[in-house]
Computed example of a mutant assay.
Amino acid sequence: MDLVTPHIGLVFWTTLCFAILLFILGKYAWKPILAAVAEREQSIETALLRAEAVREEMARLTNENEALLKSARAERDAILSEATKVKNQIIADAKEAAQKEGSRQIELARIEINNQKAIAMADVKNQVASLSLEIAEKVLRKQFEDQKKQDELVKDLLRDVKLS
């Protein structure tokens, strides 16, 4: 049982060594170790605070980006809507202009046709008049070969003129 029961000298020297070790550790090691631990705790806490601030900033930037995206989409939709309206207006204006131009071209063609028709009718009338004069001239020449027929025609014409 000697092994289990320590001697008073051993306890004294063990306690003395332990106290000296505690004094040396307290004087030279614990202060720097505790300072390093406190500094490490402070840097971890600072890093955590920065990380939280960065997370909040990222959340704010994400919200701003979403708002900007919504705004950009709304603006894009408005621009596309306006472009569609302008396109439809241009198409409607072009159709209207084409219809007006078509109507004008049809009217010009109708006028040209009427003019050509009038010219053709005048030409036909002139040709008919010319032919009628030629026929009348030939008929009259044939009838006026005789002097007696000429006198009778003049008398008939004079009677018609006096009656009118």
Rank of each mutant, 00 (worst) to 15 (best):
M1K: 01
L3H: 02
I8R: 02
G9F: 00
W13V: 07
W13A: 09
I20G: 04
F23A: 02
F23S: 00
K27S: 01
Y28N: 01
K31L: 04
I33H: 05
A35W: 04
A36L: 11
V37L: 13
Q42K: 15
S43H: 11
E45L: 14
R50Y: 13
A51N: 09
V54W: 11
A59I: 07
T62A: 07
T62S: 09
T62Q: 00
N63T: 13
N63G: 13
N65W: 03
E66Y: 04
A67E: 06
A67Q: 06
L68M: 03
S71N: 04
A72S: 07
R73H: 01
A74C: 08
A74F: 02
R76T: 10
L80N: 09
A83D: 08
T84L: 13
K87I: 10
K87Y: 14
Q89T: 11
Q89V: 05
I90R: 14
I90Q: 10
Q99I: 07
K100R: 05
S103W: 12
A109Y: 07
R110Q: 00
R110T: 01
Q116L: 13
K117G: 10
A118Y: 04
A118R: 12
I119L: 15
S130F: 10
E134R: 00
I135W: 07
L140H: 00
F144T: 09
E145R: 10
K149Y: 09
Q150H: 13
Q150E: 15
V154F: 06
K155G: 08
D156W: 12
L157H: 08
L157S: 08
L157R: 03
L158H: 08
L158G: 05
L158M: 11
R159D: 14
D160M: 14
K162D: 15
